[in-house]
């Protein structure tokens, strides 16, 4: 029994699920986990120019989604980028 759940390691089932999701789309879109990491790094760089983002909590994955106009599942690039702050640059 772990008394400090905060320090508990992620369950291996969850690790497997996350690895698989990345792997499958990489297989399909023909892009490797390394390329996914590069896309992620590039996105961080670009978005950081405009807003303060939490780069540790960025989630980027390829998903299979059913598009409204199409019966089949198609891969989509999904990115979840938590924003800490949007600096006021006097645009508004």
């Amino acid at each position: 029994m772990n008394l400090f759940p905060v320090f508990r390691k992620k369950n291996s089932g969850e690790i497997a699920r996350n690895r698989l999701k990345l792997l499958l789309v990489a297989d399909k879109a023909d892009c490797s986990p390394e390329i996914m990491q590069m896309i992620k790094d590039d996105m961080i760089r670009v978005v950081s120019r405009y807003m303060d983002i939490d780069s540790d909590r960025i989630e980027i994955q390829m998903k299979k989604l059913k598009q409204p106009d199409c019966e089949r599942f198609t891969p989509v690039l999904y990115a979840n980028i938590p924003i800490r702050d949007v600096p006021d640059k006097g645009i508004y």
Binding site: N11, G13, E14, R17
Partner: peptide
């Protein structure tokens, strides 16, 4: 037993992934 303690993907996980 392994699914319950989170050390194996559940049926739902597999169905969700393979669709």
């Amino acid at each position: 037993d392994m699914v319950k303690r989170g050390d194996m993907m559940s049926l739902d996980d597999v169905m969700d992934i393979l669709a």
